[in-house]
Amino acid sequence: MANNTKTNEFHKEQNKEEMKKQLITFAAMIIFTVIAFLIVGTGIMSKMMAIPLLLIMALIQVAFQFYYFMHMKDKGHELASIMIYGGVWAAILTVAALTLVIWW
């Protein structure tokens, strides 16, 4: 029983560490969001500069969401990665096809 309590304490400590990382992730996501809204709200950037930057910031936020909040960085997420990247692959093709048809 004493041994059990010890491992529990260890796991609790581990969970706490993990939670700290999650909070840093959340702070980073808030900062990215605020920057994105500021770029558009203040209009300091030209359209050619702003749009790629906004998309890059969205991709970083989504990576944080997947790898930290949804734990894809942890062990045992190989199949999960295959499924989500498979979906992303099909998603890129879909968006490319639908936007390319209006190019001419």
């Binding site: 499924m83 979906g87 992303v88 879909t94 968006v95 096809a97």
Partner: peptide
């Protein structure tokens, strides 16, 4: 399921962009 949802939303995003 989320992999499939990604494609579902991609088709809606593509339609919106077009």
């Amino acid at each position: 399921f989320l992999g499939g949802e990604t494609v579902l939303f991609a088709s809606l995003f593509g339609t919106y962009l077009a």
